[in-house]
Design a protein around this nucleic acid. Structure first.
Lengths: 107, 107
DNA sequence: CATGTCGGTAAGTCTGGACTAACGGTAAGT
DNA sequence: ACTTACCGTTAGTCCAGACTTACCGACATG
């Protein structure tokens, strides 16, 4: 519930955040490693990770001075569910519209 | 092909554009009607529709002086496919990681 | 304790893009 | 032809947010 699709899609509206997610999909990574693989500074990565964490798309785990981030499957599930429902209503209303069109000549 | 997931997600990164898509999911609408149901002006809606059209999330059809917009199922399919593949790789690497953890003591 | 590493936070700058007002163009009606 | 309705485009303003620099705390190691 707290993971609203709006928050998630706002978070994924940024290219760098999507890149972070794609990197984390391969496995957990520390912040510094992530920053080395991206064309932005470490603080920028940190701020992106905060947004992703607030959207519940990633989870954090401390290990010494390092903090590992990994993808939160529940966050992904929320988006998938959003698009599934969107897809359903779109097709349903499309079908209803087509039926109205066909019955227009019949009635 | 031309519908890259990046373009689509950039387009859906705006709340008003998502609102437009949700309205259009119920059925085709003219620009003016759409503007009446949203807290923004008609030109703003027009510009959002251009972005959505470039992302191939909607299609346009002229009828007199009015132009109807409707959801393009192919655009939705692109996002769904993106998240499906994302979901798969995430779970795959999670499984691989778990296996490495368990074999760590064995080897 | 001193030093080094890792990473979040604060402050401030700056650009992308969302918005409105004004205009122009096309189709339908009178 | 004149008017009205509908809509895209342009010009220009303005603000959210993405970025960097600098700073600070937490933990490990000598």
């Amino acid at each position: 519930m707290s993971t609203s699709a709006a928050t998630v899609l706002d978070a994924l509206g940024d290219g760098h955040r999507r890149s972070i997610m794609e990197h984390l999909a391969e496995g957990p990574l520390a912040v510094g490693v992530l920053a080395d693989r991206l064309p932005i500074s470490r603080p920028a990565v940190s701020q992106h990770l905060r947004v992703l964490k607030e959207a519940e798309l990633v989870v954090e785990s401390a290990a010494g001075t390092r903090r590992f981030y990994r993808v939160n499957p529940a966050g992904l599930a929320a988006v998938r569910e959003y698009f599934d429902r969107f897809w359903s209503t779109t097709l349903d209303n499309f079908a209803a519209l087509a039926e109205t069109e066909s019955t227009r000549s019949t009635s």
